[in-house]
Design a protein around this nucleic acid. Sequence first.
DNA 1: TAGTGGTCTAGACCACTCA
DNA 2: GAGTGGTCTAGACCACTAT
Lengths: 230, 230
Amino acid sequence: MIKKSHHTVRQSMQDRIEVGEWPLGALIPGEIELASEYGCARTTINRALQALADAGVVVRKRKGGTRVCEMPVRHAKFTISIVREQVEATGCQYRHSVLTSMLKIPPAPIVTRLGLKSGEKAFYLETLHLADDRPFAFEERWVNLKAVPNILTAPLDDISANEWLVKTVPFSSGDVIFSAMNVDQKVATSLETAIGKAIFVVKRTTWYKEEFITTMKLFYKEGFQLYTRL
Amino acid sequence: MIKKSHHTVRQSMQDRIEVGEWPLGALIPGEIELASEYGCARTTINRALQALADAGVVVRKRKGGTRVCEMPVRHAKFTISIVREQVEATGCQYRHSVLTSMLKIPPAPIVTRLGLKSGEKAFYLETLHLADDRPFAFEERWVNLKAVPNILTAPLDDISANEWLVKTVPFSSGDVIFSAMNVDQKVATSLETAIGKAIFVVKRTTWYKEEFITTMKLFYKEGFQLYTRL
DNA sequence: TAGTGGTCTAGACCACTCA
DNA sequence: GAGTGGTCTAGACCACTAT
């Protein structure tokens, strides 16, 4: 009998794993047994164990019981925030500047991705994000006008397309790809970087209810790092 | 009265947000009201709403109620797996090869990070990870011998240090840093890449109960991408 | 201070899966 | 078939916080 509250219980159980009382791969007592041991309802134990399972610390199977994960697969959680917040989080002043804004027939891969007809135009944007007036990231973006026609009248000089879309489109699914690339001349110029420098790139595509909305590439200034705790 | 099961309820509510029935920033009905609407217990509604809050879709405050998140901060969840699993996930055959393995006095930044005394040695490892016998990633690792002395007798040719540590050390916290860099000569040689190519780098440091265990850098072959769905 | 979410409980039934 | 986790319920009390 220790304490209650699924948080407390969770922490306690995690400790027992760390201490080695429950070794890697070991089978943990059942929920009912733990409930009586901790002197709480099974529901509470269940919550705690589900949280641990969610964190990848234990694996649960019906009838199989709960066991400590042999290969602790840790989950890193990134908050995909808008660039402005990223900049402001570093204590810098955010500003952005629209470099290019036009209707344009996108290249083939984009056409496919957006589900456009060939020859159909989309909205193309190039934006420079600045931190304390120094280049922070360069953004290339394609927007599907069928999905978001009113972006043409949005005040994109005041609010970045990034932010406008997030605030306007109710909700969306999407994918994110992180990679590294050697910066080309165009991006290098905007970022005031030497050509060929390795930079961190994030590609993101978002949909709203199966309809493509936008795809973008974000080229971060050299030296950018993405940090997370496990 | 629609259905039950917190999954169903969660999905339903998410739909109502997507459809615009509950616009961005709007206040959602209270749990009791929703419970009667959905014809289920308040607990069930609570679960669903907590899940949505966890996903960053809504924000909840006691007395303030639940409202749709104005700035939908999406959370990307990465599974920090061992390299072998990463390789095998692509359908390739995994193999690794220990290039260097020695006791060595680490450079200053590492000493600080590991909490060593100056002049104290640590275990240094260089490992090449291969996919179908082609270079996949190059790993540099420092291990704190005070924390894990028996790594010296581990069969690191059969099982990578990466995997051995994960399987041996009960549990640990840590941090992860993603970045991009221009590959230097040493790494380029191992990865069979041209010097200066942009590669994706992951730095990871792990602790076990406040004690430093290991720090490593993983240099991925050029072209490597980290993918996630939102 | 009143209202909302946060959590606990005790009991129940279901669903999966291992043997 | 039996055992374990998954989930629901109805009621209760607590904790935070907006007003």
